[in-house]
């Protein structure tokens, strides 16, 4: 019943299935999406996980003697990208809500200008 109500209200058809790339182009953020695509694509993801470990092989007897894991700490890059995107989200939100007459206190605004967000 709920489905029927929503379909009538928003005129939803099967043709309305929208790809995220199309939406990114519409929002003007396609460059950023394409820049980080390698990180998100499944192929890059699988190769990343296989790079984390390698096999130790005894070639004379054709035996796998062990699996060693590489200790690659990629948390620094992930946190940096997270900060960049979070800053953008807060920037968009403040710009949108400023139109609704919400005043930002000067202290926070100064700190934001220092951090190159506004």
């Amino acid at each position: 019943m709920k489905f029927e109500r929503i379909t009538k209200e928003f005129d939803i058809n099967k043709k309305d299935i929208i790809n995220i790339e199309v939406l990114a182009r519409k929002a003007g953020l396609y460059d950023i999406y394409a820049q980080h695509y390698r990180m998100f694509s499944d192929e890059a993801h699988s190769s990343y996980t296989t790079l984390q470990g390698y096999l130790l092989i005894d070639r004379e007897n054709n035996l796998i003697t062990g699996i060693r894991h590489r200790n690659i700490d990629n948390s620094h890059n992930i946190n940096n990208t997270l900060i960049a995107f979070l800053g953008k989200a807060i920037g968009y939100y403040t710009m949108y809500m400023q139109l609704g007459n919400i005043e930002i206190p000067e202290e926070i605004e100064k700190e934001f200008k220092k951090a190159w967000i506004i």
Binding site: I20, A24, A27, I32, Y33, L82, Y92
Partner: peptide
């Protein structure tokens, strides 16, 4: 990384 992917999709929707 998977969570980051979802975060960027949500940011695109927010911008729209």
């Amino acid at each position: 990384i998977l969570l980051l992917r979802g975060l960027i999709e949500q940011i695109i929707m927010l911008k729209l």
